[in-house]
Design a protein around this nucleic acid. Sequence first.
DNA 1: CGAATGGTTATTGTATACAAAACACTCCCG
DNA 2: CGGGAGTGTTTTGTATACAATAACCATTCG
Lengths: 227, 227
Amino acid sequence: MSRASEQAYAKIRAHLLSGALKPSEQLTEDQLAQITGVSRTPVREAVRRLEDELLLVRSESKRLFVADWSRDDIEEMFSLRQMLECHAAERAARRMTRGQVAAMEAINAALKAAIEQPAPDVGQFLEANRSFHDAIIEAAASPRLGQMLARLVEAPVVLRTARTYSLDDLRQSARDHDELIAAFAARDPEWARAVMGSHLRRAFHTFAQTVRTTTHAPDADDLDMDT
Amino acid sequence: MSRASEQAYAKIRAHLLSGALKPSEQLTEDQLAQITGVSRTPVREAVRRLEDELLLVRSESKRLFVADWSRDDIEEMFSLRQMLECHAAERAARRMTRGQVAAMEAINAALKAAIEQPAPDVGQFLEANRSFHDAIIEAAASPRLGQMLARLVEAPVVLRTARTYSLDDLRQSARDHDELIAAFAARDPEWARAVMGSHLRRAFHTFAQTVRTTTHAPDADDLDMDT
DNA sequence: CGAATGGTTATTGTATACAAAACACTCCCG
DNA sequence: CGGGAGTGTTTTGTATACAATAACCATTCG
């Protein structure tokens, strides 16, 4: 997207995630224009996207509010993501080329390297993790599916703050990825689906556990909800 | 949405479906503004929506084109819709109230009434059918799921033109709905999912068959791809 | 005391003018 | 004859002014 509207999107999003804008608070486009430093036109575009992601909502009469998410919303999102990404894994297993499998092996090697250090590099881990999942979606070759998942993965970043990853979590994740790669190499859709299912479902429970203890949290960026 | 942008959306969409704008043809916002009779601002908004629905696409450098859909695209859409709507049926079965079940019975009664006439009223049938599926999504109480399905159901209207519904198709559809209602009343998620699965899968094959014979077709509106 | 009504303000929606970027073309130079 | 820099043109992106609509508030009448 174009510079200004992209920038507006990023800034508004950051403000939302940082907690500076609280759930159910009313916003105006002017206000957001000031915050982001661009005019209302690109702000409106950014707002559309955020509405689509359900981070912002409008009242019956077009007034703009910060969405507040219930526990049900979160659970729903995880369950949708699981459904979609299992489907993606299945499709990917049918279509993945040897080259793509090799690429995924490389990505997972990088992911392991990020873990197995004196001090595991979580940022690097998350980046590799994201690449891994993106590669699956890519291989699934389903534009709509990709679009839906992108939205689902973008959104939940909201609560993912104070999340701490145990070394065991990270290692288990890497093992899951290994098994997924094996399933892809074997071209076994059922296997791939099953592994992806447990991979994500475990992530959900880990997530639910950490959320139960931490109420809200300020600031942080670009983590992801599956370890 | 606001009057002008909604109107722009509808008109552009109609033009696309009517075949006046051919796949891969380039469009400009000005051109669309002229066609729709509003300024570029609301046109841009409409275009965003149509891009989201993948009826329009942009080149690497933001130029606008009419999307052309491959057979794979169509199949993918059906398979996504099936996955999502089965999930919706399952959720709905867990949550549906007696009142909602009663409402669905009423809708399906109207649907049957539209069929069982000297000359079946297809328009009325489709309207009832749509209400029926909407009621399920409503009962599933999952905003994101609803959003995704809405997009999926809106989009495929593209090819659904010259589709003719046999009386048997329509009756089978009504029977499926009866069974779905039974599953809901029994609060049996697995049952609901299974019925929905076969309901939509059959629709896919019926659809594929009619498409195989008809190449392209002009004009028509607001049908739906499941009978 | 409460509910309807009018005017005032706040907020969103649309049009338009201008800026930036991409494209197509020409013309020059090798 | 071909490649590429430069220039004019088309197309998209942004800002801003204005229009329409909805919320707010006070005032009045039942």
